[in-house]
């Protein structure tokens, strides 16, 4: 546990020193802010649908950008050799780095609560659904980041890490949009795998254990794969 904390601290600092964190947070707020303002003032609609509709789409590009350097950079500069010969498990390295990425994503998403507050002051807002929606966003982002961490563990090139992670994330994003072309027997399992579908369930205000378990298993699976891929140096 202590090791995870040490890695987490170092990674988070690297984000803010780089200064990747400021770029990510600023860009994220500018993009969401633009969508929100146009909807709020121009269309004069006081609800959060636009926020919860657009953020999952922005995540597609942002999460691979946040995770792409996590492991690939250390593989490229060789510091990974220093790190994995310390008395620390591969799993702790992966989890610590992943949590730092999750902290950065949360720091980008949380300021958008301002939009929710503005809406609540002017119109009617379902508080429960809003909170659930934010929880859903974090879960969804967390799953994407786990996929990105895995993508970053595969290569020592950040560009390749970005593209592979984006591709994987995109596949999970698309799953519930291709249901209509699938044979009937495939619809249920594919629908279950879709990240979007579970997000929609949660953002309706119903936090079902099935959706939570889905996200936790996605995170667990991809972090496990990332740890395996880090350990693959052993069979080279």
């Amino acid at each position: 546990m202590k090791n995870i904390w040490i890695i987490f601290k170092r990674e988070l600092r690297a984000y803010f020193d780089a200064p990747i964190a400021y770029v990510v947070i600023t860009a994220f707020l500018l993009v969401t802010g633009w969508f929100f303002t146009t909807n709020f003032f121009v269309v004069a609609q006081a609800d959060l649908r636009v926020i919860f509709g657009i953020i999952p789409f922005i995540f597609l590009f942002f999460t691979p950008a946040i995770t792409m350097r996590l492991i690939s950079e250390e593989r490229k500069t060789g510091t990974m050799e220093l790190l994995v010969t310390m008395p620390i498990s591969d799993a702790a390295v992966i989890v610590g780095k992943y949590l730092a990425a999750l902290a950065l994503l949360s720091a980008s998403v949380l300021p958008t609560i301002i939009y929710a507050i503005s809406v609540a002051m002017l119109g009617d807002i379902d508080g429960g659904a809003a909170i659930a929606g934010y929880l859903g966003l974090i879960f969804m982002g967390a799953a994407y980041l786990a996929i990105g961490t895995f993508g970053s563990s595969l290569t020592d090139s950040q560009v390749i890490a970005f593209i592979v992670s984006f591709f994987l994330v995109f596949v999970f994003f698309l799953l519930d949009k291709i249901l209509f072309i699938l044979p009937n027997w495939l619809v249920t399992p594919v629908e279950y795998l879709s990240i979007e579908r579970h997000f929609q369930n949660i953002s309706r205000g119903v936090i079902d254990s099935r959706d939570v378990i889905y996200y936790l298993s996605m995170i667990g699976l991809f972090l496990f794969l990332a740890a395996r891929s880090l350990a693959a140096r052993r069979w080279r």
Partner: peptide, 25 residues
């Protein structure tokens, strides 16, 4: 261990780096 080519975290300063390694150690 001093690995081949001496990889270091180039974005850290010397004290922070040594502290990070000391914590990991």
């Amino acid at each position: 261990y001093l690995p081949e080519l001496n990889p270091l975290y180039s974005d850290m300063n010397v004290v922070d780096f040594l502290r990070y390694i000391a914590e990991l150690r």
